[in-house]
Design a protein around this nucleic acid. Structure first.
Lengths: 204, 204
DNA sequence: TGTACATCAGTGAACGCGCGTTCACTGATGTAC
DNA sequence: TGTACATCAGTGAACGCGCGTTCACTGATGTAC
């Protein structure tokens, strides 16, 4: 692939940065972050590996940029899903569904963002914002009388980790006899956000 | 470490297999599975790398043995924790607590067992047994009148993935303001096993 | 209008590293005669 | 009791690989005079 590549016109060298990022994103999507090497990216773009250094100081900087992208995209799809609903309860459910949908649709991006990397020492602003959105969403359900939660922060944590666990297990153990995603998802959200008296009998 | 090592007496060559496994287990515990290489294991044992081939066909066989060990240990601690309780409700809670405790105490072993490895195509018997134990535990709570669950299998899935999510997130994001483990754990189990009317007001 | 020069967008060869794995071997210990 | 031999428990050197990174460079394009 990309056997001959026209060099960018003078003054447009920065375009290569985007090409590198596009290639790295695609490799991550298809093969996971460990497949993103300077050489694999360079091969995919059609350049020599050292050319990357004009745009990124090292391999980690590329992955860092991809993590930022992933968090931004995740935040965006959650916000959009929430905004499409009118009541707080539907909004909470839609946001959670969007989170899991992203994790399942783009498992390697999700893994890049939420995996146990050393990079995770500094939390991303967009990740923090997304979590606060979840807390607020539970709180809104309480205020609307749809939730009996007395600790939206703690309940949001429970919901968040449960969604995360579902997404990662679902991706890594395809042989398991999973029920439909909606079923498990509703059970998690309803059970952990104080939306019903019992987990198996859900109001809907 | 292990600068001089006495070779095993004649007929006792199989002992080296255990030494290799011990070293690999220790390396996994301390640095994660990616640090387990034939050369790192050999260095740790005090042998030449090719000596490993007399006992394991390749690197993956070592990791496979470690996965078996991890599942066996996890099953054992869960069973022990359950058996120490007399009523079904305490037993369910104790089993879940033991699961998370193992995952937090030995994050790299847990990751080895439940990470998204290609090796996961064939489910381990001990893993299946442990999950069935969880389903039965929820069922026992229903029969004892402690749970209102109408679908123990589905609820066990929800509990399992939530515990998994908590364990992995807790390990990978130490900077997050986590509440006490017991708090979140009880909320997950109670909320998803039909043990209370609302997640924040738990009966205990 | 022509030419010297600076800048830009890259390249190609090479480095040292750790890895899994193969190969021919070594030296101690037991056993058959 | 002595000796040839088989077996056992390993070893040391080497292979090819892909990696991140460094280095000196090339060739096209614009600009100053």
């Amino acid at each position: 692939m990309a056997t001959q590549r026209a060099r960018n016109p003078r003054g447009e060298g920065a375009r290569l940065r985007d090409e590198i990022l596009d290639a790295a994103r695609l490799i991550t999507e298809e093969h996971g972050e460990q497949a993103v090497t300077l050489r694999s990216v360079a091969r995919s773009v059609g350049i020599a590996a050292p050319s990357i250094y004009a745009h990124f100081p090292d391999r980690d900087a590329i992955l860092d940029a991809l993590v930022d992208e992933a968090f931004a995209e995740l935040s965006a799809v959650i916000s959009a899903a929430r905004a499409a609903q009118t009541d707080p309860l539907s909004s909470l459910r839609a946001g959670c569904a969007a989170y899991v949908d992203f994790a399942i649709r783009r498992p390697h991006q999700y893994q890049l963002a939420f995996g146990d990397r050393e990079r995770n020492t500094s939390p991303r602003a967009s990740a923090t914002a997304a979590f606060e959105g979840l807390v607020n969403s539970v709180q809104a359900c309480v205020e609307a009388g749809a939730s009996s939660s007395t600790d939206p922060f703690g309940d949001a944590i429970a919901i968040w980790v449960a969604l995360h666990g579902y997404a990662t297990m679902h991706a890594s153990r395809p042989a398991f006899p999973w029920p439909a995603t909606d079923t498990t998802l509703d059970r998690i959200v309803d059970g952990l956000a104080g939306l019903s008296a019992s987990p198996s009998i859900r109001p809907r």
